[in-house]
Design a protein around this nucleic acid. Structure first.
Lengths: 115, 115
DNA sequence: TTTTTGCGCAACCTGGCGGTTGCATAATAG
DNA sequence: CTATTATGCAACCGCCAGGTTGCGCAAAAA
């Protein structure tokens, strides 16, 4: 595969959109911050600081879980949520890839366009 | 501001969510690829390859424009769309920041938790 | 064994997203 | 001038995301 074709349309990892979608909500970004700063915690503590219900948080966590951004483990009757480090790394890497592809394409374009 | 507080809850740039939301859709990612690989183009050419209408594309472009990811300029009766390089760079930078914050926090946590 | 606490489940509601069709309008081509 | 082309605008639609309330249940505390 040529370096040119390596970056053609649709060749990015297929599961990119759900990650970005999971990141594309203020409340969820807040939850990420919370989990990041204060560490793993149960869902009872998470609504503090937000102005939504526990059940709303549950749904957000589920969205992020499906995107692979968080993970939970039961401990007694509690369910502890924590961030999934590996997946975020992947996300960042994907974005860098797009960015690189983008700038490469722009570089190629500058041979033709005045910009 | 301490290095600790620099990374506290909600301290990220406020406009992060719309960017990720704009990236969180398959069709829009496809449009980005198209614009990236084939360069700036009018909206008439963009629906090729997708299976949606021109008007649908218009809406997607508008979403991305509001997020600052694309820009358009009129040329005669045409409206040429192109990617906004600077904004993507910002997005990537933000994600790196989150990632760094994340890993820093994890590092801090490892002092307490067994993992 | 009661009582509390931490969650899960289900129903319900509202708004906006992604998409369509139809028509109007401004440039350009003939 | 007329026909074509490129686009804009508006109405409409189905569906799901984000949020709520209410109830039930299991684990832990008293």
């Amino acid at each position: 595969m040529s370096a040119r074709n390596k970056y053609r349309t649709g060749e990015q990892p297929r599961e990119l959109a759900p990650i970005f979608a999971a990141l594309g909500d203020e409340t969820r970004l807040l939850l990420i911050s919370r989990l990041c700063n204060d560490g793993p915690m149960s869902i009872t503590r998470l609504p503090y600081g937000t102005n939504v219900t526990r059940q709303a948080i549950t749904k957000h966590l589920e969205v992020m879980r499906k995107a692979g951004l968080v993970r939970n483990t039961r401990r007694g009757r509690e369910r502890i949520w924590q961030l999934e480090r590996r997946r975020l790394k992947e996300a960042r890497h994907c974005l860098e890839l797009i960015s690189k592809q983008w700038e490469d394409a722009l570089g190629r374009l500058k041979k033709f366009v005045e910009e």
